[in-house]
């Protein structure tokens, strides 16, 4: 079964890349074939991805979250899941290209990076861990989607201010809709990350020594504070869409940077394999 799972895992980035191309063709050419097939293709790829995650979990008898490659894979899947729900709600597939341009590198990195070998932590087999990581993943996936919509908002805003009525004007959803989606996705992410932090702190403090010194916790709190302040400014002071989009895009870049720092520079207790971190 391992061999079959490896082949499937290697195929996934390719399938996501094909989906990206299909969405790009739809965006740039409005092709009939792409219009009919983008959603079924992406849905099929996501289902394959879910199948892979389930089979891998059964095969390993644990959550597939032990190392960075597994986390990237699940993050890609979570972003696609959030996007598919939004696409069905908005009935607009033209934003898919932007989401897939984020998802495909995540899936490719997950397949290309070599997983760190070694025994996995027993923590991975506990229900609390599953709950904590699911919430954290949902949070970061929502921040990723929010960042993509913030990017689209800024693109369309620029086009409208320049009175440029080309592809961006034609294909993207209305400006205020993009603003609402940016805010909505960030709100979901903030709630999920808040719960993940609460669960992690209340449970982690009991099982991990020196819990408060972990840089991952500090960086996560920084991201949480950035998004929290953005939401507060919007709700309390009616911060307009454009500065809010800039803030959320910055928040996501900080989140990506913090993950990179944790993997390369800093030492964290969020380590579930012999020599790696998550």
């Amino acid at each position: 079964m391992n061999h079959a799972l490896d082949i499937l895992a290697a195929l996934l980035p390719l399938l996501y890349a094909l989906c990206s191309v299909n969405y790009a063709v739809l965006f740039f050419r409005g092709s009939g074939f792409a219009r009919r097939t983008v959603t079924p293709f992406l849905l099929g790829t996501a289902l394959l991805h879910i199948g892979l995650v389930v089979l891998r979990s059964v095969d390993l008898s644990r959550c597939p979250l032990a190392d960075f490659t597994e986390i990237l894979s699940l993050l890609a899947l979570a972003v696609v899941a959030v996007y598919l729900v939004l696409e069905a709600q908005q009935k607009n597939p033209y934003t898919g290209m932007f989401i897939l341009f984020l998802v495909t590198p995540l899936a490719a990195l997950s397949a290309l990076l070599v997983p760190r070998p070694g025994p996995t932590s027993e923590l991975l087999r506990t229900a609390w861990f599953g709950f904590h990581t699911t919430l954290a993943l949902l949070g970061y996936a929502s921040f990723a989607v929010s960042a993509v919509y913030a990017f689209m908002f800024l693109l369309l805003h620029h086009a409208l201010k320049q009175r440029s009525f080309g592809l961006i004007f034609d294909r993207l959803p209305p400006l205020d809709v993009l603003g609402r989606m940016t805010f909505g996705a960030a709100s979901i992410g903030f709630v999920a990350l808040t719960l993940a932090i609460v669960v992690g702190v209340s449970w982690g403090a009991k099982v991990v020594p020196d819990f408060w010194r972990d840089p991952k916790l500090h960086l996560t709190l920084l991201v949480w504070a950035l998004y929290g302040s953005g939401l507060l400014l919007r709700i309390r002071f009616r911060l307009p869409n454009r500065p809010l989009a800039v803030l959320f895009l910055t928040g996501f870049l900080v989140a990506v940077l913090s993950v990179w720092m944790l993997q390369t520079v800093l030492r964290t207790f969020h380590t579930f394999t012999a020599g790696g971190g998550a």
């Binding site: 009939g32 219009r35 959803p173 209305p174 400006l175 205020d176």
Partner: peptide, 29 residues
């Protein structure tokens, strides 16, 4: 098919509908 598979029917072609489309593109429905 021609309306769903091509862009033959896309976009406003009168000034009045272009004005509506512009407003919708900014504020939505």
């Amino acid at each position: 098919r021609s309306r769903s598979e091509t862009e033959i029917g896309r976009g406003s072609v009168s000034v009045a509908s272009a004005a509506c489309d512009l407003a919708i593109k900014v504020v939505g429905d």
